[in-house]
Nucleic acid binder design. Sequence first.
DNA 1: GCACTGGGAGAACGTTCGTTCTCACCGATG
DNA 2: CATCGGTGAGAACGAACGTTCTCCCAGTGC
Lengths: 190, 190
Amino acid sequence: MAIDTATAQRQVLDAADELFYERGVQAVGMDAIRAASGVSLKRLYQLFPSKDALIEAYLDRRDALWKSMLAEHVDAAKNPRDRILAVFDFLHDWFQQRDYRGCAFINSFGELGTVSPRVAELALQHKEGFRQALTQLAKSAGAPDPERLADHLILLSEGAITRSAISGSPDPAIRAREAAVLLLDATLPS
Amino acid sequence: MAIDTATAQRQVLDAADELFYERGVQAVGMDAIRAASGVSLKRLYQLFPSKDALIEAYLDRRDALWKSMLAEHVDAAKNPRDRILAVFDFLHDWFQQRDYRGCAFINSFGELGTVSPRVAELALQHKEGFRQALTQLAKSAGAPDPERLADHLILLSEGAITRSAISGSPDPAIRAREAAVLLLDATLPS
DNA sequence: GCACTGGGAGAACGTTCGTTCTCACCGATG
DNA sequence: CATCGGTGAGAACGAACGTTCTCCCAGTGC
């Protein structure tokens, strides 16, 4: 046995993450993932019985990673207002990664949303998770209508995510933070 | 001659628009476009010498159509503030089309952005056009920093575009309009 | 009537892809 | 030592794709 199951799985997911995210899901063949992961095709298929299963695992891991990175930034801030603004600092950090290419869920949804209900569902769940996190932050900050504030903040975040991807600049995060400050000033009780 | 060049071109572009937008660019073969357009493969290739050329024409037409629909909504409003808010009414109308699937440029960028510089460029140009239109509206409304206000409004719009696509509901346009009102109140001189 | 041009229908070609199969080989077990 | 299960490397398969080619016919100019 060349490599144990756990590390093989990790190597495959690492390769899938890098390739799927950079080039899109459809543009990457299973053979490219085999080459990048160093795992044999046979093993690859016994770890993930189809490309669809691998795509799902790729999105699952992205979701978990993204959530934990967000939580890390948010938890570093103390008062409720700063915790909300930390979301945009997190985005700014994310946008500066050299391989930043937008949101994997939005990209995958654009590619497969109509043909793969599973991908559409995962994208919806991912965004719903973000929505719940923001709603919680808005509630903690004492917003009179937390869901509404959360929706407003989500729009700024999603807008920044796609604009940053297309423009190639992390600046949209700064602009989104500015707008968030204005919204918080208009919404939160002083 | 079965059909003249102009109508053949229109039929092909109609088919390309529908199929590319619904299923994504890579998932649609040239043969599917031939079948949907009723134009022979030979003619298709003499109208558009490659799939890349057809994709480019598809995006060009989307850009023109989108801009004219936006202008139509904006021009129906009289005072500068309402003209800005008309952008979000336009989005709400757009989101309610039964085949709404998000922004074709964002979707195409996600699919081909890294591999096709031309698609990346077209997406950037499309968004830049939107940015200039919003900057003009912000200027007319007397914003002290029109570019900044335009950036904030863009973030709300783009966010609504992707959220509406993923959630399948047109409501994000309403939420975006609410947030825009708050931003305008905080930004524009009374 | 007859050569000729151009288009329609679709077969054909070469490539790529997802997935499976072959086969030689290694380590453990009796 | 002989055997057996599982593995790696990669060939093989069937489908789909972008693109080109073949064949046939309709309409045109002489």
